[in-house]
Nucleic acid binder design. Structure first.
Lengths: 353, 353
DNA sequence: TTGTAGGCGTTATCAC
DNA sequence: GTGATAACGCCTACAA
């Protein structure tokens, strides 16, 4: 009983009109007389026809109403980061008017890591793609996608020329925070960084370390613009727990203990504060801590982080706008967002002053 | 210069073979001789053809490789909940072998709330849909989708007969936790619940309150099975901050202060613990606290929650499996998952004993 | 192993 | 306002 599903032609025939007319009834692109529309609707009802097949419509129109978002790592953990969550909010808001939804795709960081049958940028019927960061492996499929004329945008990453980017003034912003600490008299400052590369091991950052993650590298550079010799410890993940673990190590030795810690994210900063509390240190009296992102951290109260506020939601929205422009055949341009320094109650004058 | 994009026919022509042969080269469904395949590949290369258009392939095959996931509320906040994150991990893992990706869709809770141009279950080229909860409004589009023969599964919700469900033994599990407290001698127990309905206001739950969220209702019932008269306070959101706010209120009055709090989620429990600390109460000596979910809570250490562990990732995976079955024309069946009680260090004997 | 033919279901275009 | 026609780009029988 694999009875064929009714098509718009079936409906048209039953209603005694042309397929194109029936089509128009559903799309509403052209005025249709009342009686005609009614006939069609009734016929559709009777045949159990519930509207055009999106697949066929998509082929015909050349648009699927789907925008791919490519993440690194497990989808779930992508959303661990509050900044990415906000960005997704902005993005989904921005693509909704395009009639588009967001398709979550994973960026296989290691070659061969991927499930071979998993959907990819190349096999998915997408109208555009947003890349969060951009691994070398991705570069390959990216070419294919672009060759197809599909708009692509990168957020906080580099996908080569011709791919517009949404960026942040990470270095300059982080420099400001560092300068703030210097103005407060801090000399002995430590840095807690985001991951250095995809392999995500925690540990001290050494001279020879290559940092492949743009954000990490740029923010580190900003801090070092002010404190060239500051030690840096890389956290495994941008989480409170990751920050606590890093904080314990960075703050452990009373002899060399820094009077201020520059954390590369608010979550890390929260963790560092927690580590400080564990060690019996007061914030900001004994240790000052700065964050980065300016996102609400669940459970941070009563502290208000001294941090750099980035327009996370805006970034997502901007990516959507760029896509809209490209879909519209307008010239896209890269965008640089600026962070705003926001003093809180987690930094104060150096005790060593 | 809107020069038409090369199609597989173009490639075939350039390679001097039939379109079907070229098609086979790309799909690999049928063996092709070495020389022929090479000719085709070269021609493709020259024409800048990067493989079949997914839209056309999707129409032809009747599959798009896309599974919709329908959330309530902003996409970003959907991922605020660690349980949902884990579920998404499980789900994405389970649908990957189907060659499918996840399309995020919003469930307009209020009629008319939706952006009219936003993509919907009906307009998106999907192979299947997973609903997280199920609002009445959704019911409507749901019928259309089902009429089209598209498999649908609901997680923690009710979408009517014919829609297989993935459920949790919320009531029984919560009853266990309550019984645990009773065994410890607690008599004065308060409950901190998840949202009562979509409007998300915090406040005491009164007799007359209608609770439209299944999870909330069932867990509350489980707690009341043991403590019929326990007061319940509904948190605005399942977050640490929401729990802290609730905890402050629930624990504020020294006279009537409960010796134990049953929180309906681990995040809420964490918040309640924080509120207790603020008030100078020790956990579990002065107040016992139980959670629900058994997820890692960033920043909870050194506490280990006494909680009900649910197989969140499994739930997602199960939804994927059900979809795979339906796509495969096999009979799907609903699934009931069982929580496991896990004692931690946040509950202890009642001080009032 | 390769080619031919037909159709997947819709919609843009243009004439009536 | 309505209808005929022609793609959209691909894939799968089936025949050669």
């Amino acid at each position: 009983m694999t009875t064929r599903r009714a098509t718009i032609s079936d409906v048209a025939r039953a209603a005694g009109v042309a397929p194109s007319t029936a089509s128009v009834v559903f799309s509403g692109k052209t005025p249709v007389s009342g009686p005609t529309r009614l006939k069609v609707l009734v016929a559709a009802e009777e045949l159990g026809y519930t509207g055009p097949d999106p697949r066929a419509a998509s082929l015909r129109r050349g648009r699927s109403g789907i925008v791919a978002v490519v993440f690194e790592g497990p989808l779930g953990s992508a959303f661990l980061d509050p900044v990415q969550r906000l960005m997704m909010d902005g993005l989904s808001e921005a693509v909704a008017p395009l009639g588009a939804g967001l398709l979550l795709l994973r960026d296989p960081v290691e070659a061969g890591e991927a499930d071979p049958s998993a959907p990819t940028l190349i096999t998915a019927p997408i109208d555009a793609a947003v890349l969060i960061g951009c691994s070398p492996i991705l570069r390959h499929s990216l070419e294919a996608v672009q060759a197809r004329g599909i708009p692509v945008v990168v957020i906080e990453g580099d996908a080569g020329d011709g791919v517009p980017r949404i960026l942040l003034d990470n270095r300059e912003a982080q420099r400001q925070a560092a300068q703030h600490l210097r103005d407060l008299g801090h000399e002995n400052v430590a840095i807690v960084t985001l991951g250095r590369d995809k392999r995500r091991e925690a540990g001290w950052v050494s001279e020879s370390d290559e940092i492949t993650v743009d954000v990490t590298r740029d923010r580190l550079a900003g801090a070092r613009d002010v404190y060239p010799d500051a030690r840096a410890f890389s956290a495994a993940t941008s989480t409170i727990d990751g920050g606590t673990a890093a904080g314990r190590i960075v703050l452990s030795d009373p002899e060399s203990r820094p009077t201020a810690v520059i954390a590369q994210s608010d979550l890390l900063a929260t963790g560092v504060i927690r580590a400080a509390e564990e060690l019996g240190l007061r914030v900001p009296e004994d240790v000052s801590v700065t964050g980065f992102d300016g996102v609400p951290v669940d459970g941070l109260a009563p502290y208000v982080l001294t941090t750099l506020v980035q327009a996370a939601t805006e970034k997502g929205r901007a990516a959507g706008a760029v896509i809209a422009a490209m879909l519209d055949d307008r010239e896209p341009s890269s965008l640089l967002f600026t962070c705003e320094f926001r003093p809180g109650n987690t930094t104060g004058p150096s005790a060593m002053r």
